[in-house]
């Protein structure tokens, strides 16, 4: 089967110099003859090569592994975080065959007070690191590696903890939420430990510390719109948010 080639389409991309730039605006570039099997980020590489050849400043965007596992790519494409990818995929796993001839592709940064723009579509997601630093770990001394059957964990719990741990902290949940809430991220990181016996020991302290840090950093209140789970590239669900609520309320009532 012949490969799909996009003969012409327009990329409308956001230009911004830092978080306080009052002159932030969109710029447009017509792209030609891009093969459908080109990844979205490769298309942006081609765009940047052309901009450099024209003597213009390249478009800045975050990326790293380009395998969908690092969580660095953070583009809001045509009104959706990571674009209309297959369920469970990030921007780097979006291919140009998903677009049509003559499309205008709008690219914006994650827009949230918690993620200030560094430049263009690159945003500062240090806030997520700070939330993890507040309690997203275990301090229990686990000693040397144990036998696999030393601590018995139900398979369902281990699977669920693994699903929660698959959150890559990309921030799509915050970007999609009309409240700028980081609850899906925080709840996934609380759940991945709270579901396991090693993590349960500090579950109460962890839930309180991470929620306090999330609030301190200015993320919004969750109103259960489910926009976060609809766009999550790792398919995290709001069942995690219910678990975090449970952990937090129990911890506060026990104080």
């Amino acid at each position: 089967m012949a490969e799909k080639v996009l003969k012409q389409f327009t990329v409308k991309y956001w230009k911004q110099n830092g978080p306080k730039d009052t002159n932030a605006h969109f710029e447009e570039k017509v792209m030609k003859d891009i093969p459908g099997d080109t990844s979205f980020l490769e298309m942006l590489d081609i765009l940047n090569e052309q901009l450099i050849e024209e003597g213009k400043e390249p478009f800045v965007f975050d990326h790293d592994c380009r395998e969908g596992i690092c969580g660095m790519c953070s583009l809001y494409i045509n009104g959706t975080p990571h674009g209309k990818t297959e369920r469970g995929a990030t921007t780097c796993q979006l291919y140009m065959r998903k677009f049509n001839e003559g499309d205008v592709i709008t690219i914006e940064p994650w827009r949230s007070a918690g993620f200030p723009v560094i430049k263009d579509c690159m945003v500062d997601r240090t806030a997520f690191d700070k939330i993890i630093q507040a309690g997203g770990y275990t301090t229990v001394r686990t000693g040397a590696p144990q036998d696999a059957n030393a601590i018995l964990i139900p398979k369902a719990d281990a699977d669920e903890a693994m699903d929660c741990a698959s959150c890559i902290g990309c921030g799509a949940c915050v970007a999609a939420c009309k409240n700028g809430s980081a609850m899906l991220f925080v709840s996934s990181k609380v759940s991945q430990l709270a579901l396991l016996p090693q993590g349960r020991v500090e579950a109460a302290r962890r839930a309180k510390a991470m929620v306090a840090k999330m609030d301190e950093l200015g993320f919004g209140n969750c109103t259960n719109t489910r926009a976060c789970e609809a766009v999550c590239p790792k398919c995290e669900t709001i069942a995690n948010i219910a678990r975090l609520n449970r952990e937090f309320i129990k911890a506060k009532l026990a104080d």
Binding site: G79, E108, S112, A113, G114, N179, G180, G220, N221
Partner: peptide, 10 residues
Amino acid sequence: NARGSNRYDK
């Protein structure tokens, strides 16, 4: 306030 002053174009 958490959402910030910038709104998505699309």
